Simulated assay, not measured.
Amino acid sequence: MHLQSIYADLHVHVGRDKYNKPVKITGGKSLTLTNILKEASRNKGIQMVGVIDCHSPAIQEELSDLVQVSKAEELKGGGIRFEEVTLILGTEIEIYDETCAGPIHVLCFLPTLQQMRQFTSWLSTRMTNINLSSQRFYGSGKSLQQQVRELGGLFIPAHIFTPFKSLYGKGVVRSLTEVLDPEMIDAVELGLSSDTSMADQISELHGYTYLTNSDAHSLAKIAREYQELRLKEGTFSELSLALQEKEGRKVVTNYGMHPKLGKYYHTVCKNCLAPGKFGFTCPDCGSDKVIKGVAERIQELVSKHEQLQHSNRPTYIHQVPLEYIPGLGEKSYHKLLKNFGTEMEIIHHATKEQLNDVVPDNITKHILQMRKGIQHVKSGGGGKYGKLLE
């Protein structure tokens, strides 16, 4: 059986629906469903994209419109094909119940548009505004998991270490079993401020596939993190097999930003963002309030778990979006796209000689270093991204 490599980003938000009404309040106005599919297929060059606001009725209408005019096609294995990309229908939901300090964000994916409509009907009685993204769910995490399972879906805790809205990030939950049924978790999403080596210090995560996704709030941010999957074809059922590592399907490589580039890597003063540590008084402004960084939070969790490393993980390549590269402006970016077609072709396949014919040597150098995971970075924290150094 022939298996192929497919690049996938499974966490992309919709900013506006077909009526120009907001879905993800902080999402860009150009971040419509159709624009996401075009960007993923034509410019990013990824073959699978998870749009995690497909619970919204207006988004479902737009999908139906695309299918009716034959611009998109529902696939037998689940998912919807648009040009060169498969859409995986998902939703991001906020859990906040009596069993946890919350809020905790999770991703739920369904195979078909019909099943997503059923999920929307169920959610609408347990959610204040079904039209918006990342809304609070009035019910337990386990009841949500059960409904997703009954509909044949996938359940994935999102950006699990990020402060404020994640499984471990709030600082109260010490084990996922306090909130969720571990048997109904299909994978976990690491988030921008962590990577495989950091997460694997926590033994209860060893049984799950790790995902690296963009959490894009703009078209440009799509595929700033992604993974290479080994699948027979780009469908929901094949994705499900890959997360379970069955029949040769699997995640081959995770591509993610260096954790220090994430905006919550280090602990910082909440008032002035000066670097600090938990329980300190800031020498710059005198505040004793901090935003705890992912690195410190993981160490807290490690102290209560066996400090073991999972030995058989996919390679994790530290990579940045092309827009992060010093000196690569909009003009150079469009020259690269014109010559090589997609970002995936630029990042993974164009030779040194081919790149040098289009852009200066220093930009070529950065692209080639990206392929090897070689980066020099300045750490971020407290909501401020790190920087790629020259």
Rank of each mutant, 00 (worst) to 15 (best):
Y226M: 05
V12E: 01
G171P: 04
I317A: 08
E98D: 14
S124Q: 15
I185E: 00
R117M: 00
G90T: 15
L261N: 08
Q145T: 14
N131K: 09
D361R: 14
E84F: 00
G327Q: 11
G381D: 01
F155Y: 13
L388Q: 15
S311H: 04
V302M: 05
G15E: 12
L368P: 07
K352G: 02
P111Y: 01
Y226L: 11
N356R: 15
E150C: 10
S64V: 11
K335Y: 08
Q307D: 09
N356Y: 11
Q369H: 13
T32N: 07
L388A: 12
H305K: 03
T364N: 08
A101R: 04
I93S: 01
S56K: 06
T91R: 02
A58E: 15
S379T: 11
K372E: 05
D361L: 11
I374Y: 00
R297V: 03
L231A: 09
I185S: 01
V14C: 03
E245V: 06
F119Y: 06
E245W: 05
G262Y: 07
I25D: 02
L63S: 03
M184H: 09
Y96C: 04
E61A: 15
F236S: 00
L113S: 01
T315A: 10
L388D: 12
E300T: 09
Y333C: 03
Q115N: 03
F280I: 13
L243R: 02
K250Y: 15
P103C: 04
T315F: 06
H318R: 15
E150R: 10
A242F: 03
C54S: 13
C108W: 03
E228F: 03
K165L: 07
Q147N: 14
D284H: 13
K331E: 15
E390T: 08
H334I: 11
G191W: 06
K38C: 14
G191Y: 03
G381I: 05
Q309D: 12
Y19S: 12
